[in-house]
């Protein structure tokens, strides 16, 4: 790693207060600011672009409609028609994660999804919806989720614990996947950018040597943009598949 006194790749994840609302209250941190910005950007864009409600859409409206159709098809594909009830939820999740990830790619912006507590809260919210709706809809029959049909009785002693563990590990894998991707990507990017700065300050040969990490930083930026989108998609797809479990527990 480059000299830690020059480049600290961890610093970008630090949370600090911007405005405090008195003692003990939830201070407006940089994280909170970017959560609010994310929501404002999503709501603002969708409402602004669809304001004309034109039959023949302009570019801005086409993007909104594409996002709508994309998520709607995803939910319909993995959770069926009944799953469309959760479409606003999945759409909100997808857009929040997507925009938060993409905001993270802007220099000096804070990446909301690089904090495990945020991704875990979102994953826990998904699991809460799954469990809550599962029991609300099917009652105790929802527990059939852990008992695959057509499995001989003795084998159930092995299968059921496996199913329970896999169910319980879902929120963990869901949150750690997103968190890890965002965190690792940003650290890598920062480290390579740090190389450029450090080598660049070493004179002529340093500047020559800085070309390689500069190219890497550019490549990783592109990669990270892709990862941002893909991770938002993966998060939303898995969420809708888990919700499908709540709707059809006997698989």
């Amino acid at each position: 790693m480059a000299d830690p006194n020059v480049v600290d790749p961890i610093h970008q994840f630090a949370i600090y207060d911007l405005v405090s609302f008195g003692e003990g209250g939830p201070a407006l941190t940089n994280s909170a600011l970017f959560m609010a910005l994310t929501v404002a950007a999503i709501g603002g864009y969708l409402l602004w672009s669809t304001a004309p409600r034109s039959i023949v859409p302009g570019r801005a409206q086409v993007l909104s409609e594409m996002l709508y159709e994309f998520v709607a098809n995803m939910v319909r594909g993995s959770a069926g028609k009944e799953g469309m009830k959760f479409f606003p939820f999945i759409f909100s999740l997808f857009m929040f994660v997507l925009v938060a990830n993409l905001f993270g790619m802007v220099p000096y912006f804070f990446t909301v999804t690089s904090h495990i507590i945020v991704t875990f809260a979102l994953a826990a919210l998904v699991m809460a919806v799954v469990i809550g709706y599962g029991f609300f809809r099917h009652g105790p029959k929802f527990l059939k989720l852990f008992v695959p049909a057509g499995v001989p009785f003795p084998i159930l002693f092995i299968v059921v614990p496996i199913e329970v563990i896999s169910f319980l590990s879902r929120p963990v894998s869901l949150s750690v996947r997103l968190f890890g991707n965002m965190l690792a990507g940003h650290i890598t990017l920062k480290v390579f950018a740090g190389f450029v700065v450090t080598l660049g300050s070493l004179g002529f040969f340093g500047v020559l040597g800085a070309i390689l990490p500069l190219l890497m930083a550019v490549a990783i930026t592109v990669l990270e943009l892709m990862v941002s989108v893909v991770q938002a998609y993966v998060f939303a797809v898995l969420a809708s598949m888990y919700i499908n479990d709540a709707i059809h527990p006997s698989h």
Partner: peptide, 20 residues
């Protein structure tokens, strides 16, 4: 920072959900 983030996430995500 967890509590603060959770509170803000709850506020902003709830707002987003309602808006959507």
């Amino acid at each position: 920072t967890f509590a603060g983030q959770l509170i803000w996430l709850a506020i902003t995500f709830a707002l987003l959900y309602v808006l959507m």
